[in-house]
Amino acid sequence: MAEEIGRSPNAPIASPASLLSLRGLTRRFGGLTAVDGIDLDLAKGDLVSIIGPNGAGKTTLFNLVTGLDRPDGGEVRLDGQVITGFSPERLAGNGIARTFQLGRVFGNLSVMENVLIGAHTRLRAVKPATPLIGPLLELGLALLRPAAVKAEEEQLRDEVRGILGRFGERLLPRIDQPAYSLSYANRRRLEIARALALRPRLLLLDEPTAGMNPTETTEMQALVAELKAEGLTILLIEHKLDMVMRLSDRVIVMDEGKKIAEGTGEDVRNDARVIEAYLGHGLSQPAADARETAA
């Protein structure tokens, strides 16, 4: 098959059931190979976690999958279709949603508006797919607002209230406040709410509990477990190993751009290469745990 040219010869063939499959994905920055020939399969409904020391290439891998960065080699498939090098806006349209490690909410938009942006790819009535004059029609419809456009907007707003309701009393009371006024933890929650509004087929979470205290972390863990139970396919980057062990179907360990281990939490925990990777970075496994949990 034409698509298979350029694939490393001994890479496993993508299993038909996998929603996301990466083959030999590589990204170099100058002399540094940030992501080095990563293979990964994610079946529908699975939750796979990626762990590894800082600088292992986890976020770069996310950027490659979501189109914010282009790979130097390898292939990304979503549901069997090659999506390597697609623009982020096109990938969002294909149902990939992500959160950002540093929390990138739209500061001057209200909580409601932030989540509505998440539903942008689902706008139909106000965004006709007509080629060429589509943008002008969109401008006209936004100004005139016929009944169908109003109904669509109302329905999305209702849905946003529903999504925000999943976070208990954290976000709903602040629905009209600008996002810059939210606490750090609430911004992380808002990012997830925005991602859910896209109704993703694949959700990538980049350290959703960073900077959260133990109570907040437990809450977040319960929410991610809930999403998994609903059948959402999730790729998770997380440093809190306790949460990783509880939630993941499989764990992938990265170090210096390479996948050094893959398996269940238990397998990975006892893998000699994993322990060495952490020790090699000057930290024993328990010490690393303690540090990440304290962070």
């Binding site: 979501t66 189109g67 914010l68 623009s87 982020p88 806006e89 969002a92 349209g93 949603a97 992500r98 950002f100 990138r104 909410v105 739209f106 500061g107 001057n108 938009l109 508006e113 932030n114 942006i117 998440g118 942008h120 790819t121 925005r194 896209l198």
Partner: peptide, 13 residues
């Protein structure tokens, strides 16, 4: 949204 963060805006289509 584009003004506040064009990277996040693109990631949402």
């Amino acid at each position: 949204a584009i003004r506040d963060d064009d990277v996040a805006a693109r990631a949402y289509g």
